[in-house]
Amino acid sequence: MIVFVRFNSSHGFPVEVDSDTSIFQLKEVVAKRQGVPADQLRVIFAGKELRNDWTVQNCDLDQQSIVHIVQRPWRKGQEMNATGGDDPRNAAGGCEREPQSLTRVDLSSSVLPGDSVGLAVILHTDSRKDSPPAGSPAGRSIYNSFYVYCKGPCQRVQPGKLRVQCSTCRQATLTLTQGPSCWDDVLIPNRMSGECQSPHCPGTSAEFFFKCGAHPTSDKETSVALHLIATNSRNITCITCTDVRSPVLVFQCNSRHVICLDCFHLYCVTRLNDRQFVHDPQLGYSLPCVAGCPNSLIKELHHFRILGEEQYNRYQQYGAEECVLQMGGVLCPRPGCGAGLLPEPDQRKVTCEGGNGLGCGFAFCRECKEAYHEGECSAVFEASGTTTQAYRVDERAAEQARWEAASKETIKKTTKPCPRCHVPVEKNGGCMHMKCPQPQCRLEWCWNCGCEWNRVCMGDHWFDV
């Protein structure tokens, strides 16, 4: 396979590697080409510095992935760790964990309700045991953590790749202090920090972006993250068709209702045909949960890209028209025109101005929308079919299609509260000796007794199943 190397943020060049090629071997190839010592090179990928003893497969490097290699003399205490030698983080029983690669970060837990604080980093599902597709590297999971809308060759929703760059020099040479644990960490600028490894760059702020994971991409090709779309790892039924499908869209209502993408497309087109989208002054033209839940309008309007190009163009047109109407304007009634106009409040005669090729020149009556006339309008008909009709959803289907309910059931079956801080902690095999993952707590306690870890627990039921 081919990976592209950008040395000291210059133009990239291809390097041929195998899945079992080590990072140090990659350094040696680059060092020979650039005429520099291999031990002064640092390989940066997806916000993480890659260790010498890791392989291309370990690092989730795919065909035509772009890695950054910078030349920086080692500072005291760094060289041993980078070589894969006596790194205290690798000691058996050590409590410190390697910062998780962005290629394996899962933010789907952050669609849980606000009262489930902490689960994004504490609760991990076991539903990723799908067998890898044919042709994928051994052991590589097909679980997708992110979804994007690819405006490039795909023109559809695709699995996405999370990447990070330095907000100062805009190069992907920043190593994160810690990985993101929720969508806010990724979507809110300057929320996460790190250290830029580019020479002479003092940058410390992280800037995240997404790429389409279905095809090789260049540095400049980015895609918009659709953070309401998630892999259906909890096997929730769709609120409309009641099938279990994946991926799904999880509405931001209190129940976190789930809808499959085909039904979401149908829901949007139906509402669009009836012009029953909601115009929100802050958000724009949007839709609420299909069950009509309060405070559930979709905030990231790129989710409506699921409509496809033709329907999305209609959505944008109707949204612009609705904006004009909300501002007190009118639409030209001549067939084939429909231009938005903003006449004076007491102006009865409205002319669709033909300047700049935008208007048709038609003069019409503001009251009856017919060709302009003197005197009273002959008839004014009330528009028919403008009443909002509820999208029919079966109550039982709505009850079963809740992301929140599956989460709470998982928590109930696989977790116990920490005796000190009461945060839910998952036990997935292993011994009875637990350690609270909350940095402010870190209590060592017994899963069996529910009390602080002691010699009695150690001698009596340390390794009970």
Results as ranks from 00 to 15, higher is better:
residue 2 I to Y: 11
residue 11 H to V: 06
residue 13 F to K: 02
residue 13 F to N: 02
residue 18 D to W: 12
residue 20 D to E: 11
residue 28 E to I: 02
residue 31 A to F: 02
residue 34 Q to R: 08
residue 34 Q to F: 13
residue 39 D to T: 06
residue 46 A to C: 11
residue 51 R to H: 14
residue 53 D to M: 03
residue 56 V to L: 12
residue 59 C to L: 05
residue 69 I to C: 11
residue 86 D to E: 13
residue 87 D to S: 13
residue 90 N to E: 13
residue 91 A to D: 11
residue 106 D to F: 04
residue 113 P to Q: 13
residue 113 P to W: 06
residue 118 G to S: 10
residue 118 G to Y: 03
residue 122 I to L: 14
residue 131 S to N: 12
residue 134 A to N: 09
residue 136 S to F: 12
residue 137 P to G: 13
residue 141 S to V: 09
residue 141 S to A: 08
residue 158 Q to A: 10
residue 159 P to M: 07
residue 159 P to T: 09
residue 160 G to D: 00
residue 163 R to F: 15
residue 165 Q to S: 08
residue 165 Q to C: 09
residue 181 S to V: 08
residue 188 I to M: 10
residue 190 N to L: 07
residue 196 C to F: 00
residue 199 P to T: 10
residue 203 G to W: 00
residue 209 F to E: 13
residue 215 H to N: 02
residue 217 T to D: 14
residue 219 D to M: 08
residue 226 L to A: 02
residue 226 L to Q: 01
residue 235 N to I: 03
residue 235 N to C: 07
residue 236 I to V: 12
residue 242 T to Y: 14
residue 258 V to F: 00
residue 263 C to N: 01
residue 264 F to C: 01
residue 264 F to M: 03
residue 266 L to D: 15
residue 283 L to H: 11
residue 284 G to W: 02
residue 288 P to N: 08
residue 293 C to M: 02
residue 294 P to A: 14
residue 301 L to I: 11
residue 303 H to L: 06
residue 304 F to N: 00
residue 316 Q to K: 13
residue 318 Y to Q: 04
residue 319 G to F: 06
residue 321 E to F: 04
residue 328 G to E: 05
residue 330 V to E: 08
residue 337 C to W: 02
residue 346 D to R: 13
residue 349 K to P: 04
residue 353 E to A: 08
residue 359 G to P: 07
residue 360 C to N: 02
residue 368 C to D: 03
residue 371 A to W: 15
residue 373 H to K: 03
residue 374 E to G: 05
residue 378 S to F: 13
residue 378 S to R: 10
residue 378 S to V: 09
residue 394 D to M: 06
residue 396 R to K: 12
residue 397 A to K: 07
residue 412 K to M: 12
residue 414 T to D: 11
residue 418 C to G: 01
residue 428 N to S: 13
residue 432 M to W: 04
residue 432 M to R: 03
residue 435 K to G: 03
residue 438 Q to W: 06
residue 439 P to T: 09
residue 440 Q to G: 14
residue 441 C to A: 00
residue 445 W to M: 05
residue 445 W to V: 05
residue 449 C to L: 00
residue 451 C to Y: 15
residue 453 W to S: 02
residue 454 N to V: 02
residue 459 G to Q: 15
